[in-house]
């Protein structure tokens, strides 16, 4: 569990994170979504104590990260920026981190196996491809067998194989009951793995919701109907939980709360001709764009 309260970070004049309050609940995959520059990486660095908040607090499992006697056991993090000495082998890098917590050599070998690094474990990390480097970062995050895993844009720059590998890994981590906190600037990535979403823009929380609700709010389950008699169809479809909109004089209605099937049957029963009956697809990407539109606009002008 990660709890941020009024978390704020300013770099000089630049306010990167502006009073964020959110909770990452245990046992689920939570997406941390926002356009570039929204403050996701800064927030994640504050969670593990690398950056000091200007004000506000953030705790991991009830305590400040630094106050845990064995921090790597609480949360494992893959950060955006490189965090490995290129002259050290993957194995030695992991051994260094393991030593700080008295974690066994056996566990180091285990995470090397889990992340598919066996072949390159004794090669210097400086020679690694982007994908291998990412695997090494994930191996480090898993080292302490933490209940919470936090990954900052893990698929950025990876080839399709790498993306697929990360996606499978996330699914597996979630299936093991771990809390996964995952950032991305791409909604499409999120929709595949996250149930819960925290959407940020300009350092603020824009939405704290589920993927399903986000789509619904953006009009995702609406049905478009074109009919010869919109007035009559409208009154026939009306009912509790049903919302119908349509411009006067137009043959088109937008219906929420009824399925295309129900609408088709109703129209047929009453002999009302229908020319069009389509589910109104609001893509997640569209929903996300609507939400972050202002934030991006602002960033564009400020830059």
């Amino acid at each position: 569990m990660i709890e941020a309260r009024e978390l704020t970070k300013a770099y000089g004049q630049k306010i990167a994170v502006d009073g964020l309050t959110f909770t990452v609940r245990p046992g689920a995959v939570t997406g941390f979504l926002g356009p570039n520059g929204a403050g996701k990486s800064t927030t994640m660095r504050m969670i593990v104590g690398l950056d000091r908040p200007t004000s506000g607090t953030v705790t991991v499992n009830g305590r400040r990260y630094a106050d845990h006697p064995a921090p790597l056991r609480e949360i494992g993090a893959l950060l955006e920026a490189k965090a490995v000495h290129p002259g050290r082998t993957a194995y030695d890098h992991l051994m260094v981190l393991a030593h700080t917590h008295g974690i066994s050599r056996h566990r180091v070998e285990e995470v090397i196996g889990q992340t598919g690094l066996d072949q390159v474990a004794h090669k210097r990390a400086g020679a690694f491809s982007l994908g291998m480097g990412q695997r090494l970062g994930i191996a480090a995050a898993l080292l302490g067998d933490p209940a919470t895993v936090m990954l900052d844009e893990p698929v950025n720059g990876l080839d399709p194989d790498g993306v697929l590998w990360i996606r499978n890994l996330l699914t597996k981590l979630a299936a093991e009951g771990r809390t996964v906190f995952l950032s991305s600037h791409l909604m499409s990535e999120m929709a595949l793995v996250a149930e819960h979403l925290i959407v940020v823009g300009r350092g603020r929380v824009l939405a704290d919701t589920t993927v399903r609700d986000l789509v619904r709010e953006a009009g995702g389950d609406a049905v478009l109907v074109s009919t010869a008699d919109p007035v009559r169809l409208r009154s026939l479809l009306a009912g509790p939980g049903v919302e119908i909109t349509g411009r006067p004089g137009s043959e088109q209605l937008t219906v929420t709360g009824r399925t295309p099937r129900e609408i088709g049957f109703t129209a047929a029963e009453h002999g009302i001709p229908i020319f069009e009956l389509t589910r109104h697809e609001v893509s997640l990407e569209e929903a996300f764009m609507n939400l972050t539109h202002d934030a991006v606009e602002y960033a564009g002008r400020a830059a």
């Binding site: 950060l79 965090a83 700080t100």
Partner: peptide, 9 residues
């Protein structure tokens, strides 16, 4: 950048 791994541990 190793410092980030070091200080996270």
């Amino acid at each position: 950048g190793m410092i980030r791994s070091t200080l996270a541990a």
